[in-house]
């Protein structure tokens, strides 16, 4: 019963957070040295005072700050994030073009990292001093310490250039036709970026899952399960794992913003046509509306990711279900 109520509550809260992001965006535009008009004027190679005033009025910059904020929020809720100075196109349009690529990369890397991380963690916890356990610990250390763009470049050198198993760049082969061949092509292109981005998070999740499993395996209820005469497999997979998962899922939820950050770097390395690439070009071009639009949408992705995490946690742990 409470499920829909909770969903509604969390969604409302997410919207409030988004609103806060908008206010932050707006504040940053206003705090940053130089504004739209200066940029446009600079682009035109200088402008007269009259023209500047005219542009100001056009952008509503002559109105009080609070009105400007109101206008800004209102426009965003109509999916209008303004016009890119650099590409001279509506920002929303460009973001919608590139969002799917980023979503695909972010979610596939997250899920891949979770599945592999949990499996490694569970097996490592079986023998805390075994070889696999040490390998997981080592892998976790290495995966965390290696800069993600560097890992990407190394994989690129190894598996695209030296041994040409995977494509060097892009998201699909434009020459193939038909849904299935295209999907396969995308999957083929996705492998290296996903592995690269996933590697950091496999490291994080396997490490936490191992620790969480070890703690749960020492708990009273696992002793109870053993006292029932259950097989080690049942004890681990049925009784321990489900209790060890919540911390890992919680961590994964908190990592969404880090995954998106990593995606920016990975997209740059693999020329993956997502938001990250767009972000970099627009930052280098000082294309403020586009940058802030991307920040807004990636915050939205994080919020949705957190919402999903919340729902998964509720599914796993009955004790969370009771709470509003």
């Amino acid at each position: 019963m409470g499920f829909l109520v909770v969903l509604a509550q969390r969604t409302l809260y997410g919207l409030l957070l988004l609103l806060a992001v908008l206010v932050l965006n707006f504040t940053m535009i206003n705090l940053a040295p130089g504004d739209v008009v200066d940029t446009i004027a600079a682009d035109m190679g200088g402008a007269s005072a009259e023209l500047v005033a005219q542009i100001r009025a056009e952008y509503g910059l002559d109105q009080p700050v609070i009105v400007q904020l109101g206008n800004y929020v209102w426009r965003v809720f109509q999916f209008d994030l303004g016009q890119s100075y650099f590409y001279n196109r509506p920002v929303t349009e460009m973001i919608f073009e590139r969002l799917p690529a980023t979503l695909l990369l972010v979610f596939s890397a997250q899920i891949f990292a979770l599945v592999v991380g949990i499996l490694l963690g569970v097996f490592a916890a079986q023998r805390p001093n075994g070889i696999l356990s040490h390998i997981v610990t080592l892998f976790a250390l290495f995966g965390y310490a290696a800069p993600v763009f560097w890992t990407g470049i190394l994989l690129l050198i190894a598996f695209s250039l030296k041994i040409p198993l995977f494509p060097v760049a892009g998201m699909r082969d434009v020459t193939v036709e038909g849904f299935l061949p295209q999907a396969l092509s995308v999957a083929h292109h996705l492998v290296l970026p996903m592995l690269t981005l996933g590697s950091i998070f496999i490291a994080l999740y396997s490490r936490l899952c191992r620790a969480s499993m070890l703690e749960v395996l020492g708990s009273d209820y696992v002793r109870t399960a053993k006292a029932k005469g259950l097989s080690p497999r049942d004890v681990t997979m049925k009784h321990a794992l489900k209790n060890a998962l919540p911390p890992v899922v919680t961590l994964a939820g908190l990592q969404f913003s880090a995954v998106i950050s990593g995606a920016v770097l990975v997209e740059t390395v693999f020329s993956w046509p997502g938001l990250g690439q767009l972000a970099l070009t627009s930052i280098l071009a000082r294309d403020t509306p586009t940058i802030l639009g991307i920040l807004f949408f990636s915050a939205l992705v994080v919020i949705v990711g957190n919402l999903l995490t919340d729902l998964v946690l509720r599914l796993i742990d009955p004790r969370v279900r009771g709470k509003a």
Partner: peptide
């Protein structure tokens, strides 16, 4: 704190560095 956790870290710092 939750608000700051919603902002993708690298993107946000890219924006700060780009603007300031």
């Amino acid at each position: 704190t939750e608000f700051f956790q919603v902002l993708p870290t690298l993107l946000f710092s890219m924006v700060i560095v780009a603007l300031f």
